[in-house]
Design a protein around this nucleic acid. Sequence first.
RNA 1: GGAGGGGUUCCCGAGUGGCCAAAGGGAUCAGACUGUAAAUCUGACGCGCAAGCUUCGGUGGUUCGAAUCCACCCCCCUCCA
Length: 427
Amino acid sequence: MAASTTDIVEDLDARGLLVQLAGGDELREHLKTGSRTVYCGFDPTAESLHVGSMVPLLVLKRFQMAGHKPIALVGGATGLIGDPSFKASERSLNSEDIVREWVERLKPQLSQFLDFECGDNSAILANNLDWTENYSVLGFLRDVGKHFAVNAMIQKESVKQRLEREGEGISFTEFSYMLLQSYDFAELHRRYNCTLQVGGSDQWGNITGGIDLTRRLHQAQVYGLTTPLITKADGSKFGKSESGTIWLSPTKTSPYAFYQFWLNVADADAYNFLRFFTFLSPAEIKDIEESDRQAQGRPEAQGILAREVTELLHGKAGLDAAVRISEALFSGELSRLTEADLQQLELDGLPCTILESGASGIVEALVSTELARSNKMAREFIGNNAVNVNGQTINDVEFALASAGALHGKYFILRRGKKMFHLLKIG
RNA sequence: GGAGGGGUUCCCGAGUGGCCAAAGGGAUCAGACUGUAAAUCUGACGCGCAAGCUUCGGUGGUUCGAAUCCACCCCCCUCCA
């Protein structure tokens, strides 16, 4: 892929992935007239990225598919400082060791969607620690800091609320975050001729900071583009499910849980998410929306979304496992599962606990599998008819899990509520 | 260093000697209804089967009795130096 074939800005716009453009028509022209280098940064704030990071990560891939060269930047330096943008309060610093470890964990996640061996527009993985670690304080303050006016910095929307909010403040450490990220852009321009930074719309202030700095340091025009922060129609926070944050790491969120997350997306969000998180064309998505509207009952969108995104992240095998578990648990009778099916469920990543004693009360089983937070809660669930073992609703607090009642003599499938399942195995 | 304001159960936030396991809202969970939606309604939401027990930044104290009063300490915010 030498020259770009699709108009990437048009495509992003059609998907609703465009919030702001720094450079406007000039940027559109810039992207149409050659293969450009584009970057997006990801700070190590946890040991794994979560679903929210998939949007910019996939945007990088969209750029690569359109013939441009993507740089995934991991914030080994900025992760030590903490971005204050739109954060309500100061965050505590993570130790250097922790950040270093998270950086290593993030690298493969950042790399997995991008192509590193496709010639001229092969992706690059960078770490901003490389150009900041040995930068002297005095040098940085003189060369970089001098280009920033505090007057302008405090006007940025991203920190304004912090400055004005009663009971909160902002440390100089976090306040200077913008300088670091701005310097990243300038440095990536110098090293790789990077001319575009993309990021969530909360990054606008930091991106424009980088554009200004690059102009001052290198007399070069660079551009910015922001994507929407993903919100849900009902206003609740995107990226959480009943079991917590949806992580990209399969050890933290199993392919099954990941698949279920997408399957449970609200109708009002499903089509937008198809546009944001898949490579289906806007036209195809429109067709799905249209046919769902005409059909009765459950829409197709969530199923398509769940399959597409799960396969994108976890591959065919991960998707198959997720589908197998889902079908076994949600359709058909649990008591009909063969021993091999049950073993497969365990292999596929359904949460599983070994039951040592061979017999256990239902209350303690619920607590030990974390299906209930306390004995009291477990009893309440039972009282509400919310507990189910091997397909049978349990309404007796004294119910005992004994091998006699186990599937194939050793398995229990515990269910709390409608969707929380746990496999219990007599060991 | 000085002056002032503040730290309450996941979050916001009321409570200023007993009626407080602590109002209200949000989040969350369960049930009904459904499509493993949404909306709505009902219930739960420190621990304990219960009697009861442990909570209101920390430690001591006053009191029959403290989240509420006193002392000291820690932390946060605002202004001044």
